[in-house]
Write a protein that binds this DNA or RNA. Sequence first.
DNA 1: GATGAATGAGCTTTCATTCAT
DNA 2: CATGAATGAAAGCTCATTCAT
Lengths: 193, 193, 193, 193
Amino acid sequence: MAQKITTDEKILNAFSKLLEENGYTETTTKKIAQAAGVNESTLFRHFKDKEQLVKELVQKYMSDIDTVNAGFIPSGDIVTDLMRVADLYNHFVEAHKALFLIGMRDSFQFPKLKEMIIQLPMKLKKILVFWMTEMKHSGEINGLVNIEITATNYITLILGHALIQNIYTDTGLDISQVDFVQKNVRDFAEHLK
Amino acid sequence: MAQKITTDEKILNAFSKLLEENGYTETTTKKIAQAAGVNESTLFRHFKDKEQLVKELVQKYMSDIDTVNAGFIPSGDIVTDLMRVADLYNHFVEAHKALFLIGMRDSFQFPKLKEMIIQLPMKLKKILVFWMTEMKHSGEINGLVNIEITATNYITLILGHALIQNIYTDTGLDISQVDFVQKNVRDFAEHLK
Amino acid sequence: MAQKITTDEKILNAFSKLLEENGYTETTTKKIAQAAGVNESTLFRHFKDKEQLVKELVQKYMSDIDTVNAGFIPSGDIVTDLMRVADLYNHFVEAHKALFLIGMRDSFQFPKLKEMIIQLPMKLKKILVFWMTEMKHSGEINGLVNIEITATNYITLILGHALIQNIYTDTGLDISQVDFVQKNVRDFAEHLK
Amino acid sequence: MAQKITTDEKILNAFSKLLEENGYTETTTKKIAQAAGVNESTLFRHFKDKEQLVKELVQKYMSDIDTVNAGFIPSGDIVTDLMRVADLYNHFVEAHKALFLIGMRDSFQFPKLKEMIIQLPMKLKKILVFWMTEMKHSGEINGLVNIEITATNYITLILGHALIQNIYTDTGLDISQVDFVQKNVRDFAEHLK
DNA sequence: GATGAATGAGCTTTCATTCAT
DNA sequence: CATGAATGAAAGCTCATTCAT
């Protein structure tokens, strides 16, 4: 039942990997072809040009983003739920790391890209605001909490963490996702009670 | 008393500006020379190679970083002091925007760079930890607060904000530094009381 | 009795059409295949390589050229007969336009081609010389006319016209074949009386 | 007083030469550079792109064309004057052979080019018409001659000759310019008396 | 007999850098 | 000290052609 890996996939995988490591411009078509184990010109038969490779990743990102809603089923417990959101974002970034990175690094070359990248945090913020409003009504969240600000804070926090995690690796400021969730997110959550 | 602007500075300024806008690889020596109003080869007389230009910016960054300590004079009021830290970081990033950006975008090309970039957050964290410990002793900060975690959270927060501010501009998630400090930082501070 | 059009013909037709419009080098095998509605590799199954396509056209040209003799049946009237020769050449060029054009444009790539292309004018010249000699004897053509020179002139004239007609279209110097024959050829003919 | 040959000229000369021999597309930038004895990239410092090289030749052609008027000083003798026109055109074509050829061969790639190429014949035609009108008045040219038609014929004739001369060399139909002028042009002229 | 996938050589162009003046 | 001219290497991309199915 060996799953066949198509040339398209081989190329996209190689591209994605190199993108993470070296950024868009440094990821030459020659290197992609080499990493994918195909001829350089094959690459252009499969994807009209280098930019098309990015667009392909974006498409996947955008279609995946629609599934995020379904991934968040509130438990009613603040700590658990906030952790869930953090993990949701983290997993998504992990799964689309290459795109997340060039969304930062090469956004000037792909002006539309940053708008796509930011859609996930914005969607999560909406989810948070909706959920926090409910939690406030049910008394789980302290009545004095400013939801809009808190939600923004939380998103900024996990975005900052993703940044540290993926760019500033091994710099002394990075904490594992598990630790981050166990400690910092939990700490954040406590304040809302 | 007209301050003469040297060729060195003209080049570095042009380089810095283009770096912000287009990233390292897209900033070609031709463009730098053009923007600086000098001949392309002049550039190489002043700076051994393109990388040297980065190193020059780093040197400035590193020497400036030493002055940060002096910039933080605690007032004793939590909110005020935390705001001060946020502004301190923000101003520093503003003043070294180009470097901050390539620290993210082109870190793979300059492995040592991210270690330098991260030094500021780490230094601020140290300052925070030291200051919070004092505040805890003096009762200004709640005895239950976990200083290490809270400090990390705070740094992550302002780093996340800097990211949004400088990369994801005009995406709907960015708030002005003033608003961020007035609302989100203040909110964060309140929880510590 | 629907005449089936073979793949060979589809390809040759597409090739011929593109050749007229874009010349040999710009007529890529991809475009030929596309225009013919077949797969690019099919093309190579039918014709060993791109040059073979030219050779195929040449063959047709060469076999058609043999029929030219039969196409000229002298009427005895100078004007009528000269017009007939001009039309003969014109029709032939029309029918083999693609080849005529690359005979000019890409002759360096096909050294033998120009020798083939020139065969038609040369054949017509022979016909002319033979016919004019007879006409001179019968008194239709002025005894002082130098046949060799006049024949050369005439051929050069209709070649020049074909050139203007097919290359320098819409440039202000081109006259329709009908006008050319009605006016210029007639004028030329008058001088021989 | 050795005339220095600039790199610009070296490149243009090489380009021009290769153009005559091989046409536009086959004349690769690599070959040009090689023939000019410079590095391929030098070529692009001197001329923005390959097309610019053509434009450069065109400019020369167009500025030279203005001098043609001055080159025709009527003697009053029909034969002499017509010969002069034929020579004028011939010399011009010789001096701009490369352009004349790609004007035919690659006209589809340079749509504006053929309009420029045709300007010389058209200018010569104007000169002819003007001159023939005068000659008709003075009685040198037969009153029955249709000037417009005759001029067109003559231009078509020398264009046809140029074509044969430059493309269909060594094919058996080509006559030397000297012979062409001495025999055919003279013959043509006689008819006008 | 026709196709889709793959290839290597070659194209035009831009890069960072060096050299002579 | 600054420049203009030159360079080799490498970029993205297209070409005619072959091979397995």
